Structures are given as structure tokens and as C-alpha cells.
Computed example of a mutant assay.
Amino acid sequence: MIDISDPLNDPDWRGPLMEGSKHYLDEVNATGLDANNVYEKAKAASSACVV
């Protein structure tokens, strides 16, 4: 197991993670749900929990 402490700021991981997230959000948005809004709210809530 590899621990990547901040994968979204790691140049080797950021691209694939962002691409995978976009693909998933696009699929959910295609069903008529507002996945982008939920994703942004989840990121904001996560940021608020960081100590």
C-alpha cells in the first residue's frame, strides 16, 4: 500500500484523479442529477473539517 499524503497536489496523481472524477460526474450529470453541485458542497464540507 502506498500513502500519498496530498494526491491532488502530486503531479503524478492529479491528472488521473481529476480525469476519473470528471468522467464520473459527467455520467451522473447525464442522468439528470446535479452531481457537480453535490461534489462542490462535499469538497467545501471536507475543507471545513480539516484541522
Rank of each mutant, 00 (worst) to 15 (best):
M1C: 10
M1V: 11
I2N: 11
I2G: 05
I2Y: 09
D3E: 09
D3G: 00
I4S: 06
I4P: 01
S5F: 03
S5P: 11
P7T: 05
L8C: 08
N9R: 12
N9H: 12
D10Y: 01
D10W: 04
P11I: 05
D12L: 08
W13I: 01
R14S: 12
R14E: 10
G15T: 12
G15S: 11
G15K: 12
G15M: 07
P16R: 09
P16G: 10
P16N: 10
M18S: 11
E19K: 02
G20V: 03
S21M: 14
S21D: 06
S21R: 09
S21V: 10
K22C: 02
Y24E: 01
Y24R: 05
L25R: 05
L25H: 00
D26W: 04
D26F: 02
V28P: 00
N29L: 00
N29T: 04
N29D: 15
N29W: 02
T31L: 03
T31N: 06
G32N: 06
G32V: 03
G32P: 08
G32W: 01
L33C: 00
L33M: 06
L33Q: 13
D34R: 07
D34Q: 07
D34P: 06
D34H: 07
D34V: 01
A35I: 01
N36L: 03
N36I: 04
N37K: 15
N37S: 14
V38I: 13
V38W: 02
V38Y: 06
Y39F: 15
Y39R: 09
E40N: 13
E40H: 10
K41T: 10
A42M: 15
A42L: 15
K43R: 14
S47V: 08
S47H: 08
C49Y: 08
C49R: 12
C49G: 10
V50R: 10
V50L: 10
V50Y: 05
V50I: 11
V51C: 00
